[in-house]
C-alpha cells in the first residue's frame, strides 16, 4: 500500500513522516522517530506501557494509528520534563521508588499525570482504580500510589 504523508505534533515539535496507514502511533514513535521512551509491552491495549497524551488525555499508542493522531497534540514521556526540570510526578516516582525495571514507568508516569489532572487521585482507593490500566510486573504498585498521592498533594497546595 502506498505510504501517506502524516504530520505529527509531538512534544511541541512538528514531524513529517511518510507512513503506511497501518503504522500505529507507537511504532511511529519507536521505530521511525527514535522516541523510545514510550514502551511496547503487549501491543493490544492490555498493559498500558504505551500510554501517551493526545490533546492532554491519556491514551494507548498501540491502538492508535499514527494517521489518526494527525492534527492532535501528542505528548510523550520525553516531553514531560520542562527545561531539564523533572515534572513533579517524575520527581515523586524517584523519591518513592515507584519503579524497578523501569519498563512500565513512562506509561505509569503519563497515566499518573493525567490521573491527577482528571481529578481521579482523591484517595488511595481511587488512585489504585484509575491507575489499574498500567500493569507493573515488578510490583511497584504501593509505591506508585504513594508517588501519585504525593504529586497530587503538591499540585493541590
Amino acid at each position: 500500500m502506498t505510504k501517506i504523508p502524516v504530520h505529527l505534533d509531538i512534544n511541541g515539535q512538528h514531524h513529517e513522516l511518510q507512513l503506511e496507514p497501518r503504522v500505529t502511533l507507537l511504532d511511529a514513535l519507536r521505530e521511525r522517530l527514535g522516541l523510545t521512551g514510550t514502551k511496547k509491552g503487549c501491543d493490544h491495549g492490555q498493559c498500558g506501557a504505551c500510554t501517551v497524551h493526545i490533546d492532554g488525555e491519556r491514551v494507548l499508542a498501540c491502538l492508535t494509528l499514527a494517521a489518526q493522531a494527525e492534527g492532535r497534540s501528542i505528548t510523550t514521556i520525553e516531553g514531560l520534563a520542562r527545561e531539564g526540570e523533572l515534572h513533579p510526578v517524575q520527581a515523586a516516582f524517584l523519591e518513592q521508588d515507584a519503579f524497578q525495571c523501569g519498563y512500565c514507568t513512562p506509561g505509569q508516569i503519563m497515566s499518573a499525570v493525567a490521573c491527577i489532572r482528571e481529578g481521579h487521585a482523591g484517595s488511595d482507593e481511587e488512585i489504585r482504580e484509575y491507575m489499574a490500566g498500567n500493569l507493573c510486573r515488578c510490583g511497584a504498585y504501593p509505591h506508585i500510589v504513594a508517588a501519585v498521592r504525593q504529586a497530587a498533594q503538591e499540585f493541590a497546595s
Partner: peptide
C-alpha cells in the same frame, strides 16, 4: 534513590 532512576523516568533509558 535509584541512580538509574532519572534515565528511566524521563524515557532516556534505552
Amino acid at each position: 534513590s535509584r541512580v538509574d532512576g532519572p534515565a528511566k523516568i524521563t524515557g532516556a533509558a534505552k
